[in-house]
């Protein structure tokens, strides 16, 4: 701290006499302000994210069950049990199928919708509003609506197929169809977001490039293939990556619509963590699932940065 010199820059100020300020250098005051501004975040992050993260790692090596007063370290037992259980592999398979299905369906439909919205349309704002709206609605509420729509007797799908003389299967109770049924809902929920993002990317494509290609005799298809699509690959890439990560973390739809069933036909990681931890109180085992899920997410994130340069053009 400096001695009695007046503070720099504030000598003429009307605030200088208002309250007593400890005399210190500008740099030091700035650093203290920085800490004051940042510390609420740092404290909360340490307590509610940093510590829980390491504690989850620790718990995954214990057999802690909330129903029992004591617990033991069990080494890799949880992981071994997990990796040798059929349920785990079923969950992993479901997640991969679900994620790939939802992302490819969402992006295909969104691309078509974005190209459509990029044309001249009457009331374009209104169409955009309708298409985007599922994105902002409550999954847990709309999942109930979809359960009702999937009703094999009283729902609209049953009515439409009945009109054609066909019967609509009870999709949520059918091992082969239940995952597909959830994929439809997730796609419906997600396509508004990707459509808006792709639309923004399309509108950002340099007009002169398209005109130049068109002067060189390229048709609409060729322009899209060789000019427009390469220009929006970074955005498509972003959508693929975030789409896969979101899909793997799906919880609301499973919890409301199927409870992971029938059997484990629609079970995925987060729902299984929830079940093991909060239904069966097996905290150690559930933590091991969450650690494996974390490792999968991080490997995917790492892997995607490696393959990025292969097809994304900047």
């Amino acid at each position: 701290m400096t001695t009695n010199s007046p503070m720099i820059g504030s000598a003429q100020s009307k605030y200088v006499n208002r309250r007593f300020r400890p005399k210190m250098s500008e740099r030091r005051r700035e650093a203290i302000a920085f800490l004051l501004f940042v510390s609420p975040n740092l404290i909360l992050l340490s307590v509610w994210t940093f510590w829980p993260f390491f504690h989850a790692l620790y718990l995954s090596f214990t057999d802690w069950n909330l129903l029992r007063p004591t617990w033991n370290m069990v080494g890799l037992n949880n992981y071994i049990n997990l990796l040798t259980s059929a349920t785990f592999w079923q969950i992993a398979r479901n997640s991969v199928v679900f994620a790939l299905g939802v992302v490819s369906a969402t992006l295909t439909i969104s691309m078509a919708l974005a190209l459509l919205l990029n044309q001249w349309l009457v009331a374009r704002g209104f169409w955009r509003l309708v298409i985007f709206s599922p994105h902002i609605t409550t999954s847990a509420a709309m999942a109930l609506v979809w359960v009702s729509m999937y009703d094999p007797k009283h729902g609209p799908f049953a009515a439409a197929l009945g009109w054609l003389g066909l019967t609509f299967p009870n999709v949520l109770a059918d091992t082969n169809l239940v995952l597909l049924a959830l994929m439809v809902v997730a796609t419906w929920k997600g396509l508004g977001f990707s459509t808006i993002i792709i639309l923004a990317a399309l509108q950002g494509v340099d007009r002169t490039l398209k005109e130049a290609a068109s002067i060189d005799g390229a048709n609409q298809r060729q322009i899209f293939r060789h000019v427009v699509f390469p220009a929006i690959t970074p955005i498509m890439y972003f959508l693929v990556v975030t789409g896969i990560l979101d899909a793997i973390k799906t919880f609301d739809l499973i919890s409301v619509m199927t409870d992971g069933g029938p059997g484990n036909a629609s079970n995925m990681f987060v729902y299984q963590i929830y079940q093991e931890a909060f239904r069966f109180q097996r905290m150690g085992y559930a933590s091991a699932i969450s650690v494996i899920m974390f490792v999968l997410i991080m490997s995917f994130t790492y892997f995607q940065t490696r393959i990025k340069s292969r097809w994304v053009s900047y």
Partner: peptide
């Protein structure tokens, strides 16, 4: 470091958070 912490998904911190 703050950004890295944010990258930790909420699903893994769920159980310790509940305990806390």
């Amino acid at each position: 470091i703050v950004l890295l912490t944010f990258m930790i998904p909420g699903q893994i911190t769920l159980i310790p958070r509940f305990i806390l």
